[in-house]
Amino acid sequence: MKKLALLFFILSTPFFLASCGKDNGQSTEATHSSSSVKVQVSSTTKSSSSSEDTQATSNSMASSSSSQAKEEDKVDTKNLSADQVKEWVASIWVKRKNIDPFKNPDFDILLETKEDGLLYATVESTTQQIDTLDSFRISSDGFLEESGYFQSMPDKGWIVVSKEYLDTSMVNKEKQATSATEGNTPSSHEAAEMLRDIMEKNQGLDADVLASIPDDVLLEASAGNATNSQIAQTAENLIRLYPDLKP
């Protein structure tokens, strides 16, 4: 009986060892598989984090590029061409009076750099010999300023009307035209009356004699009213025709 049991043990041992080896192999394989899954999950997490960082960098670069583009699009108002200055001045009139003195042949915009180093622009009439219609300048800050005289505020000197090129947000539209004529320019009689007033107050000419001069003759003798030299020349022309003008 003992011999029989020993024989059974000897015969069954290889099968037992083979079964244990198989179990150990499956366990090892499962362990390796689990490790692989962990590595794959870790890799996926790292890839997702990298993708988010890339997207954030891309968004930051896009925002920076957009800001830079806006900065480049901004016009340097201290370095404008003659036409750009005239268009800027004209935009104020277009907003306020619905008149474009840059494109309308009845007007002209004259530019002059004065002793203070600033660029001045005056709006003149091309059809009538009348005083300057408006006056602007570009300040040292690059702002467009308008003479307070033409806004009925002579005590304020120069008033900023635009801080950025072609921006008219600071300008109010006039409620009604300031002139009875279609083009919003003074009539011949209004222009003559303005000239009589200047000749009387600036040159000391006789008011009664000025009133007796026909409007067309007065305007024809005018050399302009934009500068003191023009006013003096106008007075000289009139005195030549009407000596009694001089007291």
Rank of each mutant, 00 (worst) to 15 (best):
F150N: 07
D108K: 08
G157P: 12
R137G: 15
G157A: 01
E112V: 01
S67W: 04
P154A: 08
F107D: 08
V160E: 12
Y149S: 06
D141I: 05
S139I: 01
K175N: 15
V171A: 00
D83S: 08
F150G: 03
S152V: 04
W88I: 03
S49C: 03
I92C: 13
L110A: 15
L119I: 02
L144F: 03
E190L: 05
D106H: 14
S50R: 08
I99L: 04
K114L: 15
E87R: 07
T185Q: 13
S162F: 08
S188K: 09
T168Y: 08
S50N: 02
I92F: 15
S49Y: 04
S65A: 15
S64I: 13
D155Q: 13
S67F: 12
S67Y: 10
L80F: 04
N104I: 00
T185L: 13
S147N: 06
D73K: 11
W158C: 13
K70A: 15
N172W: 10
L118W: 00
T181A: 13
N98A: 10
N79I: 08
T168G: 14
L80W: 10
L111Q: 05
A90V: 07
K97R: 13
V161A: 05
F136W: 00
E52M: 11
Q129D: 05
L110H: 12
M170S: 14
S51R: 12
E174V: 00
P105H: 01
S65L: 12
V123A: 06
G183V: 11
M170N: 13
V94Q: 09
W88L: 00
T132D: 05
A56S: 07
V123W: 11
Q151T: 07
S65Y: 11
K70Q: 13
S49L: 05
D73W: 11
W88D: 09
S188H: 02
L110C: 11
P105V: 06
S139Q: 11
G157R: 09
K78A: 00
L118N: 10
E124V: 04
L133H: 07
D53V: 08
A192C: 06
T57I: 12
T185F: 10
E112P: 01
P154R: 14
N59T: 14
A90T: 04
Q128T: 09
N104M: 03
L118C: 01
I109W: 12
S64P: 02
S169A: 07
S65C: 10
M61K: 14
D141C: 02
S179I: 01
G142W: 08
I130P: 01
Q84G: 08
P154K: 15
N79F: 03
Q55Y: 06
E115K: 07
A82P: 07
V171M: 00
S188T: 06
V171T: 00
E182T: 09
K95A: 07
P154N: 11
P101V: 11
M61L: 13
P154I: 05
K173L: 12
D116P: 06
E164P: 01
V94N: 03
A121H: 02
V161D: 06
V171P: 00
Y165S: 04
E112S: 12
D106W: 13
Y120V: 05
L144N: 10
F143N: 15
P154T: 08
L133I: 12
A69I: 05
D131I: 02
I99S: 04
K163A: 14
S81I: 09
V160R: 11
